[in-house]
Design a protein around this nucleic acid. Structure first.
Length: 929
RNA sequence: GGGCCCAUAGCUCAGUGGUAGAGUGCCUCCUUUGCAAGGAGGAUGCCCUGGGUUCGAAUCCCAGUGGGUCCA
């Protein structure tokens, strides 16, 4: 790491009288103007020094501070950029949430494939860091949701052979200017520059690394300046703290982060960051929860706030010790401090979590059991627990709305709806779970055993009940619970029983490397179905061939659209090969054929027109359906996946409720209105940043394409980035029929639909089924539901009547048993009889005989097998189970049951009569045994 | 995307291969009558669907449908 030392020897430091020092507490190296300074200034080496003593000239609100920062950098030639959504998985698939401003530009801009929207630029990017969740409220400085203010500059080395290989060239600015900007911004706030500390702290992340500087002022880390300039390289000369080696790369990027909340806090000097950031909400929550402090208490809280920096679970050994230390310094008991601080900490956390939720739902995240939706659910449930625990009685949707309003979201009604739905779901889960725990608790309380860990794991993993909740409920039933310290790792163990590792067998086909990218004719005229081309090369595959042409109309599989099929023919008609599949590799399109065309030939390509037309209809219909679904269900509707087909297609969309029949019908109506309007479907290739500015990130329903320009498809009011083939006008779709709406995951619904001919076929099939049913019932189709219901009711009534009649029949049979053979078994009369009826009937008759004090042995040959029922009155001293066992063995089967009633049988019906003949002997034998 | 759990009376659930149950709600009657309540009796089930194993499946196995939950 010492090799990076030189990286920090900036001219700027030298010219401005900085000295380099090592912290006497933690050993960190830092730069400062104050030659007498000994420690780095960051907690735990120092306490907060700005509480009650703001570090800037004036107090700023969050909004004022944001504006001050952005306009400062605008005045210094940075272009202001609008923030991106907090759901980073909308433009990259390696992360879920936006955790830093640089996330907005990864991976395509940082790697130099795509130009930045401006260079240099400034932005205030809302971020969510779930990993800080346990610190929120406690340290006074951590928030899960925050805005990272930043200035970025994207540089490329000037000594490159081919500078144009990157989307930006030359150096905008680097370390010295970056630190200077930082200093100047501090100065513009009225900070005392002598108190600023620049700590050397190399940065590593996501395969990149570089020198970085933490900027500390009055005990708070206010900014981090990262100089991303290296990439991971096994032969690299720099070994970083993650143990990997790195080497310099061609692009180098200024990546800064200034915590908006901390800066605001610094300007106000309030006890915690929360009181500086959302004072109204804190006041509201305090009042609602009825928290009132005496003067002495308020004074204590105030003093504790200055030490709260030590309550960091990442740094402190454990929370209890940390609290203990603080209590000692303040000279109060831990319990007193805790009783005072905990409700406040909860309230701070609630305000922060509500802001997090407002960001999440505002940016269209839908609660779910997967992905960002799951994170949102966790945060919501945690917030609900805090709210209930501290005694806030305002509904959660109102609390979240307070933040959504402040953040100026337009979909506030939807947000409230989502929160209400989700709270209700949680309530149901808790209720269900509570009942389960009560049962378990009673069971184990009876046995005087503690509830075992396996049950706790099951409760948490399968039913979502936290162990502390189990403890609470179990205590009421007097059951003990011991939650092991490693509870959550035990849960984790249950999950990684088998790590499914699949090695993506990369198609390392270097033969195509030398071939030019295939010209894609299907974008020029999407309606054409034939073309001419030159065969550039042919590769043999395991079965069949890969044919590369100079240009093609064949659409390769991609974007959820299956490949075209068709034929390639030699121009004098001497051969025709079938194209069975089409794939694209690095821009080279491979036509998979059954026969080998000749390299260098000019061939005529002919698509399977019907298939292509259906695919185009389906693809355009997909855009139409998602647009319709958005109008019907709300603006949060976003594609979670899609697959187009010839007969039917499907799209998965995020929605917080089940998509019901009424929704489907409305979506179908809206979709077909768009079809009937017969508006043109157009494509364009605008600059990506212009497109994003105009249409937002909703463009990227099906993933983000690379490149400077992207292809947009306009269908009615709908705009999507899309690489597929489309019909010319919506009317060409013909018609859209939604076949099914199912819930594929919680929070994700799937719409399956058919377009054009396939829609007609599907409708006809559905009608056929209805007509067939009507035919069977001999009624008009419209009367089917009513009739079916009537028949079903009648059928049930008859079943009941038959039961009753069997009972009656059984009693009649039993009372008039004169025709049956009656034998004496040790003083008890026994009736042995063959009765070819079902088991229910045998049972009823046998029971009736037992009522009369008789043993009953019945055999039946009905239903293709031999069946016995043996019933015995209580005092007869014969074990029915043994009798049945004996008899059943004679017909090649088995049987059993309780001593007073047993049944059994076997496959050998022919032996039934013989077995019954022996029944009397069997009874006597069992009696005497 | 993966793991686990669940589906039985209107509701909440028990039943782990042998006659489908409890609590609650419902109906009738009685007691008391201001309410609340108490007593007696009664009705209520394609045991989610389809296949398999078995003499026999609510129960075991497979698949589907619907719901829940944990993890990345």
């Amino acid at each position: 790491m010492s090799e990076l030392e030189d990286e920090y020897r900036l001219d700027y430091f030298e010219e401005n009288g900085f000295v380099r020092k090592s912290c006497t507490d933690c050993g960190a190296n830092f730069w400062t103007r104050d030659h007498d300074r000994e420690t780095c200034g960051e907690p735990p080496c120092e306490d907060y020094a700005f509480i009650d003593d703001p570090g800037f000239d004036e107090p700023y609100s969050l909004e004022e501070m944001r504006e001050a920062f952005l306009s400062f950098f605008e005045d210094n030639d940075h272009e202001r950029i609008e923030p991106y959504p907090v759901a980073a998985n909308r433009w990259r698939d390696d992360v879920l949430l936006t955790q830093a401003s640089i996330y907005d530009f990864q991976p395509l801009v940082t790697s130099g494939q795509t130009p930045p929207p401006a260079n240099p630029l400034t932005i205030s990017q809302p971020c969510i860091r779930m990993q800080d969740i346990d610190n929120v409220g406690k340290t006074g400085r951590h928030t899960m949701a925050f805005e990272m203010m930043a200035h970025h500059a994207f540089n490329a080395r000037e000594d490159l052979e081919d500078p144009d290989q990157y989307a930006y060239q030359g150096e905008v600015y680097w370390k010295d200017e970056c630190v200077e900007y930082c200093d100047e911004f501090f100065a513009s706030m009225g900070a005392n520059l002598d108190e600023i500390v620049y700590i050397e702290d190399p940065w590593v992340g996501g395969g990149n690394a570089g020198p970085a500087i933490e900027v500390i002022y009055k005990g708070a880390e206010l900014a981090t300046l990262v100089f991303m300039s290296m990439e991971q390289d096994p032969d690299g000369e720099y070994e970083m703290k993650d143990g990997n080696t790195y080497s310099p790369m061609d692009t180098y990027i200024v990546d800064t982060g200034y915590g908006l909340e901390r800066w605001t806090w610094m300007s106000q000097g309030t006890p915690t960051v929360y009181e500086a950031v959302y004072p109204d909400m804190i006041a509201f929550l305090k009042e609602n929860a009825g928290i009132e402090l005496s003067e002495d208490e308020a004074e204590l809280v105030h003093r504790a706030a200055k030490l709260a920096g030590h309550m960091d679970i990442d740094e402190a050994e454990d929370m209890e010790t940390a609290r203990d230390n603080i209590a000692r310094k303040l000279d109060v008991s831990v319990s007193e401090l805790e009783a005072l601080m905990e409700p406040l900490e909860d309230i701070y956390a609630i305000a922060d979590h509500c802001r997090t939720l407002a960001y999440m739902f505002g940016d269209g995240i839908v609660p779910s059991n997967v992905s960002t939706g799951y994170l949102a659910r966790m945060v919501l449930r945690r917030t609900k627990r805090l709210v209930d625990g501290v005694g806030v009685d305002a509904p959660l949707d109102e609390l979240v709305d307070m933040q959504a309003k402040r953040l100026e979201y337009e979909n506030r009604d939807t947000i409230r709806d989502i929160v209400r739905t989700e709270v209700e779901k949680y309530r149901e889960t808790l209720e269900r779970g509570g009942r389960k725990v009560e049962q378990l608790a009673e069971e184990y309380a009876r046995k005087s055993e503690p509830i075992p860990t396996s049950e706790l794991i099951e409760l948490y993993d399968s039913h979502g009940i936290q162990p502390d909740m189990v403890e609470e409920i179990a205590a009421e039933s007097g059951a003990d619970v011991n939650v092991p310290d490693d509870f959550y790792s035990l849960v984790a163990q249950r999950h990684d029983s088998e790590e499914a590792f699949e090695e993506a067998g990369s198609d390392g086909d270097d033969r195509i490397d030398d071939l030019p990218k295939t010209e894609r004719l299907y974008y020029d005229d999407q309606q054409r179905t034939e073309f001419e081309a030159v065969v550039l090369d042919v590769f043999e595959r395991e079965s069949g061939f890969d044919v590369v042409l100079d240009q093609t109309m064949f659409y390769p599989e991609g974007g959820g659209q299956p490949a075209d099929t068709g034929t390639l023919s030699d121009d004098d008609g001497s051969y025709t090969v079938e194209v069975e599949d089409v794939q694209i590799r690095d821009g080279v399109i491979l036509h998979r054929t059954d026969e080998r065309p000749e390299k260098g030939d000019i061939v005529r390509g002919q698509l399977d027109t019907r298939r292509r037309r259906q695919l185009m209809r389906n693809h355009t219909a997909t855009h139409v359906v998602i647009h319709a679904a958005r109008q019907v269900l709300g603006d949060h509707i976003r594609q979670a996946g899609a697959q187009k087909g010839v007969e039917s297609s499907r799209i998965d969309v995020h929605h917080y409720e089940r998509i019901d029949r009424e929704d489907v019908k409305r979506i179908e109506h809206v979709a077909n209105e768009i079809v009937m309007e017969n508006t043109p479907v157009t494509q364009e290739w605008p600059d990506r940043h212009d497109a994003e500015a105009e249409h937002g990130f909703d463009l990227y329903q099906g993933g983000i394409p690379p490149g400077e320009n992207i292809r947009l498809i306009h269908v009615a009011d709908d705009v999507q980035a899309c690489g597929g083939t489309h019909v010319a006008r919506t009317g060409d779709i013909g018609t859209i029929k939604i076949r099914n709406a199912e819930r594929v995951q919680d929070g994700v619904g799937r719409l399956t639909f058919a377009a054009g001919e396939a829609a007609i076929s599907y409708t006809q099939e559905a009608e056929d089924a209805l007509y067939a049913a009507a035919d069977v019932l001999d009624v008009n189709p419209g009367e089917v539901p009513e009739t079916a219901e009537r028949f079903f009711e009648e059928w049930k009534a008859r079943g009941k009547e038959i039961e009753d009649l069997k009972e009656e029949l059984a009693e009649v049979r039993a009372s008039g048993a004169g025709d049956a053979e009656e034998v004496d078994v040790g003083g008890t009369p026994a009736v042995v009889q063959r009765l070819d009826a079902d088991t229910d009937e045998l049972r009823a008759t046998a029971n009736a005989l037992v009522e009369e004090g008789k043993i009953a042995v019945f055999g039946s040959g009905a239903g293709g097998s031999a069946q016995f029922v043996v019933a015995v009155p209580e005092d007869a001293g014969v074990n029915a189970g043994e009798v049945v066992g004996e008899l059943a063995s004679k017909v090649g089967g088995g049987g059993g049951g309780p001593p007073d009633f047993a049944q059994g049988g076997g496959p050998d019906v022919d032996a039934l009569d013989d077995a019954l003949d022996d029944a009397a002997d069997v009874l006597r034998a069992v009696k005497n045994a």
